[in-house]
Write a protein that binds this DNA or RNA. Structure first.
Lengths: 332, 332
DNA sequence: CTGTTAGCGCTTTCAG
DNA sequence: CTGAAAGCGCTAACAG
């Protein structure tokens, strides 16, 4: 790999001049400029980003902590939103997975910090508020996505999960359902699971329906988990005419289980999901769900991170995203 | 951020000694070692990875080029496999998306190279063989995933798409189907699309069935595209009793369209997908598909990259992955 | 406009 | 076992 020195030698100028044309940081005589450009091309020179970062104290990297890149389309969509804006700013994204585990999240954040990321965007589920607040005290700007950390509202991008759960459940109640099952994650670290569940309970209460723990099924928050949880609910022999799910993936699994048991949807059981993942409108039956604008939220988080970096004003930007009910076939 | 100098001062040793305890690169008197450790902790010291990389010529980063992180679970699963092994090696992953576009892929690769990645793993669809061969000539080890570059077999990890397409189509023929539609990508840059289609044609020919262009539907390679392509096929008024798809996502969309038209699956039309994505077993009906072990392939690619880096021998490792038919309900 | 020079934080000889 | 010193490749004053 050629260095700036090689280029300067070949172009018969000093390294400063080379640096100047690389960074366009001062006027350079046209002829020398040409010579430098030619030499760079000939040597296939590309500045060593580490040397640049070392001296300029800027890595041009935004570090992102996600739960699990593979946990369905959720994080992929989030990343897509972030990448779009980070890319536009000519910066790079470094992604690490925390797998929703406290120790791994902590380790990943340290690694990102050690990489001298200019800013961090964290989707942390497992770390306590206190630790996040401590982190935010450091000199690296940090944005939290999908979580509202008390006192750090301006650095958070979050979703009204409770409201969403409530809206979804209310729809079912309005349709006349009284026995509404809830299929959710068995991992209490999922704050949003607890919040959605709270919304569900809010709506039940509003409707004068007593919360019934036996109507709650828990398992891993993916298709298979939904299948399992629904299987247990059925085995338990409880009665319900509707199911609300923590997310669309679980609900897809739950539906699969219901259909296997010959239960008609929405004829016998109505189903509502959460997230509106890409394939929600292609399931059978098409899923009624609560839209979660994760891609836009990813964009917003990235925009906030960049704004913080540049000291730009972003006080007025929206940080709280609202649920929106998408009604399709799976409810009656 | 504390530097090695701060630590050395606090611990009353030279920076060399600090470096030694950081890297465990030589014996250090236990007491000094303790002092250094204590100082590091007190100052919350973390070595500057750029300075390390600059001098050691090692970034500890593996650069990965993917198509589109959001193009369904495919890349996400691939990344999961890679991350697992890269993480285990205590290295980092830098991901960039090429979006299947030539210019963007080229740009992303340059960016990765400039970041001094120790090795690259490329999922390139759009770049011509010649350019990849040229790239591989450089001093950064490169692995190609999901593509067989002529002459670089040992640096490739690929899948027998043609065989898979053939197997899938053969299953349908064995079941007595003669009119088999094919739903695929409208983007010719998808080499694997062309290969799978070739396998489909192989099987047709073997079965003495004439290939019929009007039985091919093309659209963007996701659920929506599958829905659209199937809609066109139906509008075209062609007759078919089975559908083969480029991938499961398209097939899910196609099924949705068929069901909307009141067509029974597999009663009236049998359907076979490709990839065996996570939700394939939770669709209605459950998808018969060709398993694509992308996660393992991601692992293998990462293992190869690391082996190349360390100059380890990996001649014997499997690079070609074989299709495996997964028969579920969607076929009769 | 241009070249010289002093580091950025760290690893790695090379002498003790 | 330990410290001094020489860079890694680059940017940013500073002095022409």
């Amino acid at each position: 790999m050629a260095t700036i020195k090689d280029v300067s030698r070949l172009a018969n100028v000093s390294i400063s001049t080379v640096s100047r044309v690389i960074n366009n940081t001062a006027q350079v005589a046209p002829e020398k400029r040409e010579a430098v450009l030619a030499a760079m091309k000939e040597l296939n020179f590309r500045p060593n980003s580490f040397a640049q970062a070392l001296v300029s104290k800027r890595s041009n990297c935004i570090g992102v902590l996600v739960g699990d890149l593979c946990g369905g389309p959720f994080f992929a969509q989030m990343m897509r939103g972030m990448e779009r804006v980070i890319d536009r700013a000519n910066k790079f994204t470094i992604v690490m997975s925390g797998n929703h585990a406290e120790a791994r999240e902590r380790h990943a954040i340290q690694a990102l910090l050690q990489r001298q990321c200019d800013a961090l965007i964290l989707h942390s589920m497992a770390l306590p508020d206190a630790e996040l607040i401590e982190l935010a005290r450091g000199d690296t700007p940090i944005i939290f996505i999908n979580r509202l950390v008390p006192g750090l509202e301006s650095q958070c991008v979050w979703f009204d999960n409770r409201g969403g759960g409530s809206t979804a459940c209310q729809l079912l109640i309005d349709k006349g359902h009284r026995n509404i099952a809830f299929v959710t994650s068995d991992d209490d670290a999922f704050v949003d699971g607890r919040q959605r569940m709270q919304g569900y309970r809010d709506a039940l209460e509003r409707g004068g329906i007593t919360y019934d723990e036996t109507l709650v099924g828990r398992a891993y928050a993916d298709e298979q988990g939904g299948y399992v949880a629904m299987g247990e609910l059925l085995a338990r022999g409880v009665t319900f005419s509707a199911v609300l799910g923590f997310n669309d993936a679980m609900v897809a699994g739950a539906i699969s289980c219901l259909l296997e048991h010959g239960i008609q949807i929405p004829g016998q059981v109505s189903v509502v999901g959460f997230d509106d993942i890409p394939y929600a409108r292609y399931t059978y039956p098409k899923l009624t769900t609560v839209r979660y604008p994760i891609e836009q939220m990813g964009e917003r988080a990235a925009e906030l991170a960049l704004a913080l970096l540049d000291g730009r004003d972003c006080e007025q930007w929206v940080r709280k995203f609202a649920p929106e009910l998408v009604i399709r076939e799976s409810v009656s």
